[in-house]
Design a protein around this nucleic acid. Structure first.
Lengths: 115, 115
DNA sequence: CCCAATAGTATCCTTTTGTATACTATAGCA
DNA sequence: TGCTATAGTATACAAAAGGATACTATTGGG
């Protein structure tokens, strides 16, 4: 792993995943497939509409998710992961794996600290 | 991959990597081994001392890096990745791999857009 | 006629991140 | 005596991210 020109690539990935909501949104779409706006909103307790819209727009911009609007009333808009976006799964998995270890590690550290 | 309790784990990993400087700092320490404060600073053009100090303190807090102070004048402080912190390498690698594809993908998208 | 449901916008505010700049302590050296 | 080097702090500020709340359009149903 060389360093200088490689950094920006790591940062690119990070730039796409970063934010309080993006990883959760992506996990939901990866796990559950196509979802409507309202379904996502219900899945993300605490998110505001503004935030959800913003995150979805940004992910769409990067071609990570796809947005399909149905000409209906009331409106129906569906979101799904693109082929390309599915490539993020290994990163999410690596993070998940590490996160699991991290939880145990934190617990261990606290135990030691309390002695 | 289950969802609800799993989310926080992904977010834990993200929380540690996120920031304009943390991934670069970690890559430098992973690649070059132990480094002094001033060496890191020189390696990160544009970072202010305050930011570098802050990021290093946070990484230390999470037991990702280790800080060793030598009782000298002028001061000497060395930073290195911990065993535990080394566990982040697969994540950085997955991001790097994806980032490389992303660069090509972006280029392709721009080419298409310009037709 | 009025209400509910959906997928948003618009506006204002707070918190978090990041930047710029100046300052400190101390030993060795000229 | 004053300068340099190192690893920081302190203070003020600017920008970005996130949150709270209110508003919109439309149509089918009561």
């Amino acid at each position: 792993m060389q360093i200088e020109p490689e950094l920006c690539k790591v940062e690119d990935a990070l730039g796409i995943l970063v934010g309080k909501w993006k990883p959760i949104i992506l996990l939901h779409l990866l796990k559950n497939g196509t979802q409507r706006f309202s379904e996502l909103k219900r899945s993300l307790p605490g998110i505001t509409q503004k935030m959800l819209t913003k995150q979805l727009r940004e992910l769409e911009e990067e071609d990570i998710i796809q947005r399909v609007v149905y000409a209906q009333v009331p409106p129906k808009v569906e979101y799904s992961i693109t082929e390309y976006g599915r490539g993020l799964e290994p990163i999410l998995e690596a993070m998940h794996e590490w996160g699991t270890k991290h939880t145990l590690h934190k617990r261990e550290m606290q135990r030691k600290a309390s002695i």
